[in-house]
């Protein structure tokens, strides 16, 4: 089960939509956010296949401008 750390950038004008959209992913845990629109989140998925799909879907969430990864651990995959 891979674990990935991500920084998502959201459009502050659509902040509500963005957070609501992110909250719909059960594999996503939000760890923090700031006034610049940075959201730190962790994805824990069954496979990195699933993680890829989640990242793709996050990029489609209303108000999300960009989703980049900073860390991945796949030691038990």
């Amino acid at each position: 089960m891979p674990i990935g750390g991500f920084v998502v950038t959201i459009d502050q004008k659509a902040k509500g939509d963005a957070f609501a959209g992110l909250a719909r992913f059960p594999q996503v845990e939000i760890y923090g956010s700031d006034e610049k629109g940075n959201v730190v989140l962790v994805i824990e998925s069954e496979t990195s296949k699933e993680m890829e799909k989640i990242v793709k879907d996050i990029n489609r969430v209303e108000g999300v401008l960009n989703c980049v990864m900073t860390y991945i651990n796949v030691e038990d995959e």
Binding site: G4, G5, Y31, D34, V40, V42, T70
Partner: peptide
């Protein structure tokens, strides 16, 4: 532990304190 490692790594890049 691994999730917190992932979160701290990401947070450190944007100067966010967790």
């Amino acid at each position: 532990f691994l999730k917190r490692t992932a979160a701290l790594t990401a947070a450190s890049y944007v100067g966010m304190n967790l």
